[in-house]
């Protein structure tokens, strides 16, 4: 049996002393798209930040294995260079740093010796054209004054250029109108392939009309309470998360009132 691309085993994560993820297990194989669905506050962004090694998120129990290797000792930048990519839900702006400069630096970090600066301009222009991004984008400052759609397209552009092996897309569909959603979904489909595993984190079923997942998982209150095929997403769309949320333990303070 081959080693899975990503294997999460009984993962518990705390943020500022509060446990958010309460024992998650998940396997993503190369070439697969897994959708992770859940309502607000279920722990979706905690999982994506933890996978990327954000210092604020503390793993208290369990393991994350990437290509069989435990990520515990690897810092964010090392994870990225190893091929993990996070498309942010709310990409932060970096005033004064141009998109071109940022991407050139990032590609140099990711590909090391193999990065060819002379090829950059061509590769960069071609990638922008494919995603329908205006060339003027290159000289704008990273995410500074970008519209919601521009931010998401910029994330997909980075994913395209950095060629990850594992991409975590954190609510990349949120806040997009139907045209922008379609462009972003096309971008994702275009990047799908036998070498890339995708964890598509979303609140809504909408994007799954465009990006067909191999598996769907439902995250409620820090636990995956159900996994299934793509039909599960349609069921969630019809019934909502409410039937699952009753499984939540009621917070004790409220009960005592």
């Amino acid at each position: 049996m081959s080693v899975p691309l990503l294997e999460i085993k009984d993962l518990h994560v705390q943020v500022e002393g509060k446990e958010i993820l309460k024992g998650i297990s998940l396997r993503v194989e190369k070439g697969q798209v897994h959708a992770l669905m859940g309502p607000n506050g279920s722990g979706k962004s905690t999982l994506s930040n933890t996978l990327m090694g954000h210092p604020k998120y503390q793993v208290t129990q369990g393991q994350i294995l990437y290509r069989g290797e435990n990520l515990a000792g690897l810092k964010t930048d090392a994870r990225a260079r190893a091929g993990i990519f996070l498309a942010f839900q709310y990409p932060t702006s970096i005033p004064g740093v141009s998109v071109a400069n940022f991407l050139r630096t990032a590609m140099k970090a990711r590909f090391g010796e193999a990065f060819q600066p002379k090829e950059f301009r061509k590769t960069f222009k071609a990638a922008m054209a494919e995603l329908g991004i205006d060339e003027g984008f290159a000289t704008r400052y990273v995410n500074d004054g970008f519209s919601g759609g521009e931010k998401k397209r910029h994330e997909i552009l980075q994913m395209k250029l950095l060629k990850p092996e594992l991409a975590i897309l954190d609510e990349t569909d949120s806040g997009l109108d139907i045209d922008a959603l379609r462009t972003v979904a096309e971008g994702i489909n275009h990047l799908r392939g036998p070498e890339l595993g995708i964890l598509l984190i979303t609140h809504y079923q909408r994007i799954l009309n465009y990006v067909q997942p191999e598996a769907v998982h439902v995250l409620i209150n820090g636990q995956i309470i159900r996994s299934g095929g793509k039909d599960l997403a349609h069921e969630l769309e019809a019934k909502g998360y409410a039937p699952y949320e009753v499984l939540k333990e009621p917070p004790k303070e409220i009960v005592s009132k």
Partner: peptide, 12 residues
Amino acid sequence: QEFYLMSRGLPS
């Protein structure tokens, strides 16, 4: 900002 850049492979 630092996390964002590091998530693209840039050392601190």
